[in-house]
Simulated scan of single mutants.
Amino acid sequence: MRILLTNDDGIHAPGLEVLESIARDLSDDVWVVAPETDQSGASHSLTLSDPLRSREIGPKRFAVSGTPTDCVIMGLRHLLDTPPDLVLSGVNRGQNIADDTTYSGTIAGAMEGVALGVKSFALSQAYGWDAASQVNWDCARTHGARVIRKLLAVETPGDTLFNINFPDCAPDDIKGLQVTRQGKRDQNLLMVDAREDGRGRPYYWLAFRRHLSNPAEGTDLYAIYNNYIAVTPVKLDLTDHDMLASVAGALAE
C-alpha cells in the first residue's frame, strides 16, 4: 500500500514525525509532501496567483511552498510516479473538531485527497486548555495505526473522509472509539488581539480563546472531553438537503 502524507503545521512539525511512524506501521511505501511553512487555518485554499516551488529534502520527502491542498495536488499530479492508495493528513497540533472543521488545513489535505479519488483521513491530537500546555503525542502515536486499519475496512462513498481526533490523555486512559457527528461550541472562540508596534502603529493577531463547552453526547466535542477517540465521517457535499424543498417552494411563488 502506497501512502501519501501531508499536514498544515509544516514539513518540520513534530506531528508529521508522529504521522510517519503511524504510516510505517501500515506500509513501507510512504511519501511525504508537506508545506514548507506553517499553514494552519489555510482551510481548502489553493495557490493560484504565485508559483509553487518544490524542494526534495530526502528520499520520498518533499517540501512545497504552498498549502496542504497544493501539496496533495503536487503529490498526486506531479511528484509520485503512481497514485497513492491512502492520503493521511496530520497529525495536527491541537484538535480539529466542531467549528474548527471549516478552518482546518489538516482536514483540507484529506478533502483534496478524496476530491482526487483517494481514500483519505485527517488526524489531530488534542492538548490541554492551559496556554502553556505541551502536546502529548503518545495517544496518537500509540493508537493511530490501529484506528486506521479498522477504517480501511469500511466502504466509504467517494466524497467522504474520516476526521480522527485523539484526546489529551495517556494512551492507556483511552476509553474507546466513538463515531461522532460534528459538534458546535457554545460560543465562537475567535478573538482579535490588538497591539502596537514600536512606532505606535496598530497591528492584530487573530487568536482563539480557551473555553470548554457543554457538548451533547454523540458529538466530537463530547468524545474528546471524555477521553474517547472521535471518528467523524465528513462529506465534501455541503448542500443542506433538508432545505431544498422549502427554498424551492419560496422561489416558485
Rank of each mutant, 00 (worst) to 15 (best):
Val30Leu: 07
Trp31Gly: 01
Gly113Thr: 09
Val247Glu: 10
Gln39Cys: 11
Glu253Ser: 09
Ser43Asn: 11
Asp168Asn: 13
Arg195Gly: 09
Thr82Ser: 14
Gly218Tyr: 10
Arg77Glu: 13
Asn227Leu: 02
Gln95Thr: 10
His143Asn: 12
Leu116Gln: 09
Arg185Pro: 06
Asp25Gly: 15
Phe121His: 10
Leu151His: 05
Leu4Ile: 01
Glu112Cys: 09
Leu123Ile: 11
Ala216Phe: 00
Asp8Ala: 08
Val231Pro: 02
Gly109Val: 13
Tyr222Ala: 14
Gly66Leu: 00
Leu79Met: 02
Pro215Asn: 02
Leu161Ser: 00
Val87Leu: 01
Val33Gly: 03
Cys169Met: 07
Phe166Lys: 04
Val114Thr: 08
Ile229Met: 11
Pro233Ala: 02
Glu155His: 14
Leu236Cys: 01
Ser89Asn: 08
Ala252Met: 15
Leu251Cys: 05
Arg141Asp: 05
Ile73Trp: 08
Gly198His: 07
Lys119Arg: 15
Leu4Gln: 04
Ala115Cys: 05
Val114Ala: 14
Leu48Gln: 15
Val87Ser: 08
Thr6Pro: 01
Arg77Thr: 12
Val192Ile: 13
Asp193Met: 11
Trp137Asp: 08
Asn7Leu: 04
His12Glu: 03
Leu76Tyr: 05
Arg210Leu: 04
Asp38Leu: 12
Arg141Asn: 13
Val30Pro: 06
Lys235Pro: 02
Gly66His: 05
Leu16Cys: 10
Gly144Cys: 00
Leu189Asp: 04
Leu46Glu: 05
